[in-house]
């Protein structure tokens, strides 16, 4: 178990280093001169040269990469060429909003998705399964922005149950913070719940058909123990995989929902930076996203090994 974790940790570190190289080179390969973008209207060659010098663009790529990595290690990702605000400060304000929203959305997705998935598998071929399948299809088909607008229209504006937009930091007022995030999390969570439901359902169907389920029934185990203990535990690897993938997608892709509900999140920041060709911000955002994916993958692998003992052995031997 321990050697498996060390092994995975080492893999994650290597991946992270590769990610920094790709991020660094990727941004350098983008068309357009960052000095020009930084200078705005000014086209004076002398001041452009000064800007290049100040941004370190005249150094060799290796030196630039070294500066970038050293800075990143110190938490310094440069400053926005647009606003002059340090990139780490921008990420520091945007990322927590998105992470909180993503985790709440996942909570919604797991509770809804796993429950309906298990019910659909256990009640196979009965009305409960048809209903669950129909819900999942609906969840997959309805676009987030539409669901968001409908939610705002009826639940926020119509019934006044939730605020229609805006954000309050958790530190300032936890209740208001959660109140503001309920609708976005529900909207974001339903689509993922549908994906989780379908994967849970098929994994549960496979588990429920396994020989060890027959053994559990032959022991005299209650249906609850058979489904909740024996079948679900074996289906969790699939569920954790889906949830991990979705969490990664959420952190970089909650942008539509963030826009609709006026949340100052990470997704909105990313889109703005790309449109304004704000290289230090793009670089920082991509790096943080990559790091988040690597961290999530690592956590998913740790979860695998906790769920299924066979994975520990396989990892330890390789």
């Amino acid at each position: 178990m321990r050697s498996y974790l060390l092994h995975r940790l080492w893999q994650s570190a290597v991946t992270l280093v590769l990610a920094t190289i790709v991020v660094f080179l990727g941004v350098r390969a983008l068309p357009g001169d960052p000095a020009l973008a930084f200078a705005g209207e000014e086209r004076d060659p002398a001041s452009l040269a000064a800007i290049r010098e100040r941004l370190g663009l005249n150094d060799s790529l290796v030196v630039q990469y070294g500066k970038f990595v050293l800075g990143a290690l110190r938490g310094d990702l440069g400053t926005s060429t647009r606003t002059g605000i340090p990139v780490s400060t921008m990420i520091g304000t945007g990322l927590p909003v998105t992470i909180e929203l993503s985790l709440l959305a996942l909570l919604v997705a797991i509770v809804l998705g796993v429950t309906t998935g298990v019910v659909a598998a256990v009640r196979r071929g009965r009305p409960a399964e048809w209903f669950a399948n129909a819900l999942a299809l609906l969840g997959l088909s309805v676009p987030n922005f539409w669901l968001g607008l409908i939610a705002i229209l009826y639940l926020a504006v119509g019934l006044g149950l939730f605020p229609a937009s805006g954000f309050v930091p958790f530190g300032e007022d936890p209740v208001a913070n959660l109140h503001h995030l309920v609708l976005p999390a529900l909207v974001l969570g339903t689509g993922i719940a549908a994906i989780v439901m379908r994967q849970t359902r098929s994994a549960m169907l496979e588990s429920l058909g396994a020989d060890y389920i027959r053994t559990a029934r032959a022991k005299g185990a209650s249906p609850r123990a058979v489904i909740g203990r024996h079948a679900l535990r074996n289906s969790l690897v699939v569920v954790v995989t889906v949830v991990g993938l979705q969490l990664g997608i959420l952190i970089s892709g909650a942008v539509v929902t963030e826009r609709i509900f006026g949340l100052p999140g990470f997704g909105k920041m990313t889109i703005d930076a790309v449109f304004q060709r704000d290289y230090p911000v793009i670089q920082g955002v991509v790096l943080v996203t990559a790091a988040a994916y690597i961290l999530i993958n690592f956590l998913v692998d740790v979860a695998y090994s906790l769920i299924d003992p066979r994975i520990r052995v396989a990892g330890g031997q390789s």
Binding site: D211, Y212, T215, G220, A221, R233, I307, P309, R310
Partner: peptide
């Protein structure tokens, strides 16, 4: 359920898949 496992017990063919791997 009270009979299964207590009074009438089963051993099945394939011991790898008949035991729960987790």
């Amino acid at each position: 359920r009270r009979v299964r496992g207590a009074e009438v017990a089963y051993v099945f063919q394939e011991p790898m898949t008949s035991l729960n791997p987790v």
